[in-house]
């Protein structure tokens, strides 16, 4: 197996019951340790593709290989961050963040210790005893992110994690995410339909065509990420990439 590929999507198609063809023959190789985004128009099958990689949806045809092994369901090397947060409303932040570890049978003191570390990492220290209903959308998604980080998976799958938070929160969250991932060496697959978000966050952008979704282009961005967030947003390469993607995607608009 090629050591430079961690997730290999081979000829994946998905037709939902009722005949909606969401994905058609998708081929995609994801390199390890980098942030890849799926970008495409609404309804093109981004969530479907991500959930197939997560093992939450069975493809109609084709295979997904993770670290060279064919997957048949969710696995410990992959963790999912849900668009709608998917937090237990009856559990506090501490238990929610520790929930993945709880399901794995880790004893309470250990899993709470791990959870506290990640709660602090995502900037929620002090909110351990709060309930999801007491948190803002952005804070809830931080809980979802901490839960995914806590199980220490190599691959983070994030489905439009910032789509239901306001613009300012979103920018702050993007910056925090980059800082957090900077010292985590994780592979991240990130779904968005914001061009700016895709270019700002990722090393590789996979453009999907309109339904049935196919990979139409893969854009490698070479943005200098050593500067401040505002420097990145003013970077020549950043602006060029946004422009180029917009021209490609415009072709898919009706």
């Amino acid at each position: 197996m090629d050591g430079k590929i961690i997730v290999d999507v081979k000829g994946v198609s998905k037709t939902y019951e009722g005949g909606v063809e969401a994905l058609q023959d998708v081929h995609l190789a994801v390199p390890p340790g980098r942030l890849t985004t799926f970008l495409g128009p609404s309804g093109c099958g981004k969530t479907t593709l991500l959930k197939i990689i997560a093992g939450l949806i069975e493809p109609t045809a084709g295979d997904v290989l993770v670290k060279g092994r064919r997957i048949s369901g969710p696995g410990p090397e992959r963790a999912f961050v849900f668009q709608d947060f998917a937090l237990l409303p009856w559990a506090n932040v501490l238990r929610n963040v520790a929930f993945g570890l709880e399901l794995r049978g880790m004893p309470v003191p250990e899993r709470h210790a791990v959870a506290r570390t990640y709660i602090a990492e995502v900037g929620l220290a002090g909110f351990e005893e709060s309930y999801p209903s007491q948190l803002s959308g952005g804070m809830r998604q931080r809980v979802g992110l901490a839960r995914a980080l806590a199980v220490d998976a190599d691959i983070l799958l994030m489905d439009e994690p910032f789509s239901s938070v306001d613009e300012q929160t979103r920018r702050k969250f993007q910056e925090d995410l980059l800082a957090l991932l900077g010292h985590q060496r994780k592979t991240v697959i990130f779904v968005t339909h914001s061009i700016e978000e895709a270019v700002y966050l990722s090393d590789r952008i996979v453009l999907l065509s309109r339904r049935p979704g196919k990979v139409s282009r893969v854009i490698e961005s070479n943005i200098d990420r050593s500067g401040s967030p505002d420097d990145i947003r003013r970077d020549r390469n950043y602006l060029d990439a946004v422009d180029e993607i917009w021209r490609t995607l415009k072709a898919y608009l009706p």
């Binding site: 969710p74 998917a86 794995r104």
Partner: peptide
């Protein structure tokens, strides 16, 4: 929530 439970094994 069901999907969340499944994804965390």
């Amino acid at each position: 929530l069901i999907a969340m439970g499944r994804s965390f094994l």
